[in-house]
Design a protein around this nucleic acid. Structure first.
Lengths: 205, 205
DNA sequence: GCGCTTTTGTGAAATCTTAAACATAATATA
DNA sequence: TATATTATGTTTAAGATTTCACAAAAGCGC
């Protein structure tokens, strides 16, 4: 359905292009060349053109790319044309910050369920949602047909939560817990651990 | 001082090794082979051995790696043997979550300054710190000799904040704002944008 | 219309990265 | 002590990714 065989590393850059194009469209700009876009992103123009060429021909020679058109094409390719429901597990400080984060809307995602295993929190409100018992992840997430989840629980609980999400049919997991989790083939995991990112820079200090 | 010419991509994996080894050390384990470690991390044993070989010989044939020893060596290589001070800019929900995050201690970092530009917030306490005026980033961060900063402000403010941090002498920036920023040669930036990570997975759904 | 400039899409070349394979060394077994 | 097993560090090969370079197309000015 998508394309035949696009390298993962190419796919991983598309969201960066989309983010920049959305920003440029907001600014009211119409057209941008691979050279200009590359300059903004710190990526070579050739790489941008090559990446996009995996999916079709979106530019016009001598002119560049129509910003709105390319943005829409990237949204289609990345399948974020409609807002997708996301289940959030973990109602701690990080969970709350994610809940209140205004940046999901308009970029393809909407948190629509929140779970926690703390009896003190279950039943309470967080934002517009009632915090649900983590025990019910399997049934509720499956019922709603939710495919995407964010895990914001301590490391000790993460694998267990991920297992429940996988059983519920979740196919994409954004894991904030500082641990590598095991998932079956076909389930995707992305990791966010600020310490890992910081340590990637201290080497160069 | 570090090594002659280690590829960035190799350096980027070292923190993952360190994280796993610290966890194993906590568990009381003594020794691990590249095969076992690779299995835990989803990385090939050959790659782990190759990566480590850039920095020296840390293992013993027939046995594997001494966990504590290799952990200590990685801490040394990544220069996180002592806790480093980090300046946090942005005292919103995310900033608060980072402030309260217990995961920095013991992994080489300690937030020790918090800035915001909101007059309502300046002077208030957040955790153990008084929120300082963003206007004073340049002087205070420079005075303290802080080299690392976390940017947790809206996209519109990010470049301006980054510029101030760079002028203050910061060399490593973890940017949570959903925008690519410009920095001079020699300043390192890592990005965390949950939407980017989510969009890297929706392609495969 | 005609040259001049710009910029795309792409095949080929260059570079970088990963995986495979193996000699060597350490340990365990008997 | 000899033999079998395990696992490293490194060399070599394979594979993946990026860069280069250029033909073709589109717009602009005159």
């Amino acid at each position: 359905m998508p394309a035949k065989d696009v390298p993962d590393i190419v796919v991983s850059r598309l969201p960066l292009y989309l983010r920049a194009l959305s920003f440029l469209a907001e600014e009211g700009l119409q057209v941008i060349s691979s050279k200009e876009l590359g300059h903004k992103l710190g990526i070579s123009p050739a790489q941008i053109r090559k990446d996009l060429s995996h999916f079709g021909e979106f530019g016009k020679q001598g002119t560049g790319y129509n910003i709105q058109y390319l943005r829409d094409q990237l949204r289609r390719i990345l399948k974020v044309t409609e807002e997708r429901e996301v289940a959030l597990v973990g109602a701690g400080d990080l969970g709350r910050a994610l809940m209140h984060y205004g940046g999901f809307a308009g970029r393809g995602f909407r948190i629509s369920l929140v779970f926690d295993n703390n009896p003190q929190k279950i039943g309470q409100k967080m934002g517009p949602f009632e915090i649900l018992d983590s025990e019910s992840i399997e049934t509720i997430v499956a019922d709603r047909g939710i495919e995407i989840a964010i895990v914001a629980v301590p490391a000790e609980a993460a694998q267990e939560v991920v297992d429940a999400l996988v059983r519920a049919g979740v196919k994409a997991i954004l894991n904030y817990a500082p641990i590598t989790v095991k998932v079956p083939e076909g389930v995707h995991v992305q990791y966010i651990d600020p310490v890992i990112h910081l340590q990637r820079m201290t080497y160069y200090l």
